[in-house]
C-alpha cells in the first residue's frame, strides 16, 4: 500500500490552522477543530483533519516523552 497526500506548497499558507483535506485539496480551514469539523460534517465528505505546523516548528520535533 502506498499513500500520498497534499503537498507542503498547498499547505504552508495555512500554518498554525486546522485544515481538512479531501481528495488532495483543502476542503476548509479554521482556528479551532470544532469549526472545521462542523464544515466537514456539513460537506458530507471524508476528510483528513490536522493542524498545519509553523515552518520553524518542524525543528523542535525531537520530543522524547518519558513517564
Amino acid at each position: 500500500m502506498d499513500t500520498r497526500s497534499i503537498s507542503w506548497n498547498k499547505l504552508k499558507k495555512y500554518s498554525g490552522l486546522w485544515v481538512a483535506v479531501a481528495e488532495e485539496e483543502i476542503l476548509t480551514s479554521g482556528r479551532t477543530l470544532e469549526e472545521v469539523m462542523k464544515k466537514v460534517e456539513t460537506s458530507g465528505k471524508k476528510a483528513e483533519v490536522f493542524q498545519v505546523p509553523l515552518e520553524e516548528e518542524v525543528y523542535i520535533l525531537a520530543f522524547v516523552f518519558e513517564l
Partner: peptide, 18 residues
C-alpha cells in the same frame, strides 16, 4: 481521520485536547 508523525522516541502517542 488525521495524520501523525511516527516518533520512535516517544513512549506514548500524544494528541491535542481539541
Amino acid at each position: 481521520l488525521t495524520r501523525a508523525y511516527v516518533d520512535s522516541g516517544a513512549n506514548f502517542s500524544i494528541f491535542n485536547a481539541e
